[in-house]
Amino acid sequence: MQTQPIRIRISWPSGHLTATLDDTPTTQALTKALPLASTAHTWGEEVYFDTGISVSRETDARQVVEPGTVAFWSDGDAVALPYGPTPISQGDECRLASPCNVLGRVDGDPHVLATVRHGDPIRVEIVDA
């Protein structure tokens, strides 16, 4: 049975975005924890924030992803939102700190994440269909 994709809204003081998540074990764990409030961290052209949930690395976890991927960093219990190169990228790739569970994609242009500042409050909630 195909389930509906899950949409979330991520907000910070200077903006917000929505993302569409696939139905994965990590997505299910994350959505059970929503809404959540956290604090933004930046690492190159990546925003990440602690979720307070702990999940295992999935078998299809990846370290190099497309800009706008919504990923879960199981080593740090954090959502990672890369929109460009990180300090360990080779060239223009989005290389995460370690393999992450891929949850879905940001809707629209992920470069809006450039307005997130280290220390910004972050809120994540489910978008009603």
Rank of each mutant, 00 (worst) to 15 (best):
Leu17Gly: 04
Leu17Trp: 09
Leu17Lys: 05
Leu17Ile: 10
Ala19His: 09
Thr20Val: 12
Thr20Gln: 14
Thr20Tyr: 05
Thr20Gly: 07
Leu21Asn: 04
Asp22Phe: 11
Asp22Ala: 15
Asp22Asn: 12
Asp23Ser: 14
Asp23Phe: 02
Asp23Met: 06
Pro25Ser: 12
Thr26Glu: 01
Thr27His: 03
Thr27Gln: 05
Gln28Tyr: 03
Gln28Glu: 12
Gln28Ser: 12
Ala29Arg: 13
Leu30Arg: 02
Leu30Ser: 06
Leu30Ile: 13
Leu30Phe: 04
Thr31Ile: 15
Thr31His: 03
Lys32His: 13
Ala33Gly: 02
Ala33Thr: 12
Leu34Trp: 05
Leu34Val: 12
Pro35Tyr: 09
Pro35Gly: 12
Pro35Glu: 12
Pro35Gln: 11
Pro35Met: 12
Leu36Pro: 09
Ala37His: 15
Ser38Tyr: 08
Thr39Asp: 02
Ala40Ile: 09
His41Val: 00
His41Pro: 00
His41Asn: 13
His41Arg: 14
Thr42Asn: 10
Trp43Cys: 07
Gly44Ala: 10
Glu45Pro: 01
Glu45Lys: 15
Glu46Gly: 04
Glu46Tyr: 07
Glu46Val: 00
Val47His: 04
Val47Gly: 04
Val47Ala: 03
Val47Met: 04
Tyr48Glu: 01
Tyr48Cys: 06
Phe49Leu: 07
Thr51Asn: 12
Thr51Asp: 05
Gly52Asp: 14
Gly52Met: 09
Ile53Gln: 09
Ile53Leu: 11
Ile53Phe: 11
Ser54Gly: 02
Arg57Asp: 05
Glu58His: 08
Glu58Ile: 02
Glu58Lys: 02
Thr59Phe: 09
Thr59Leu: 09
Asp60Thr: 13
Asp60Ala: 13
Asp60Val: 04
Ala61Tyr: 07
Ala61Gly: 05
Arg62Asn: 04
Arg62Tyr: 00
Gln63Pro: 11
Gln63Phe: 07
Val64Glu: 10
Val65Met: 06
Glu66Asp: 14
Glu66Ser: 14
Glu66Lys: 14
Glu66Gly: 02
Glu66Ala: 15
Gly68His: 11
Gly68Trp: 03
Gly68Met: 05
Thr69Pro: 02
Thr69Trp: 00
Thr69Asp: 04
Phe72Ala: 10
Phe72Thr: 05
Phe72Ile: 08
Trp73Lys: 07
Ser74His: 14
Ser74Phe: 04
Asp75Val: 11
Asp75Asn: 11
Ala78Gln: 03
Val79Asp: 00
Ala80Ile: 09
Ala80Asn: 04
Pro82His: 08
Tyr83Met: 06
Gly84Val: 00
Pro85Ala: 15
Pro85His: 08
Pro85Cys: 03
Pro85Arg: 11
Ile88Trp: 00
Gly91Val: 11
Gly91Cys: 07
Gly91Met: 03
Asp92Gln: 14
Glu93Thr: 03
Glu93Leu: 01
Glu93Met: 01
Cys94His: 03
Cys94Gly: 00
Cys94Asp: 02
Cys94Asn: 01
Arg95Glu: 11
Leu96Arg: 13
Leu96Cys: 08
Leu96Gln: 08
Leu96Ile: 03
Ala97Tyr: 12
Ser98Asn: 14
Ser98His: 13
Pro99Trp: 09
Cys100Phe: 07
Cys100Ile: 02
Cys100Thr: 03
Asn101Thr: 12
Asn101Phe: 06
Val102Lys: 13
Val102Asn: 05
Val102Trp: 05
Leu103Thr: 01
Leu103Pro: 02
Leu103His: 08
Gly104His: 07
Gly104Pro: 10
Gly104Ile: 12
Arg105Lys: 14
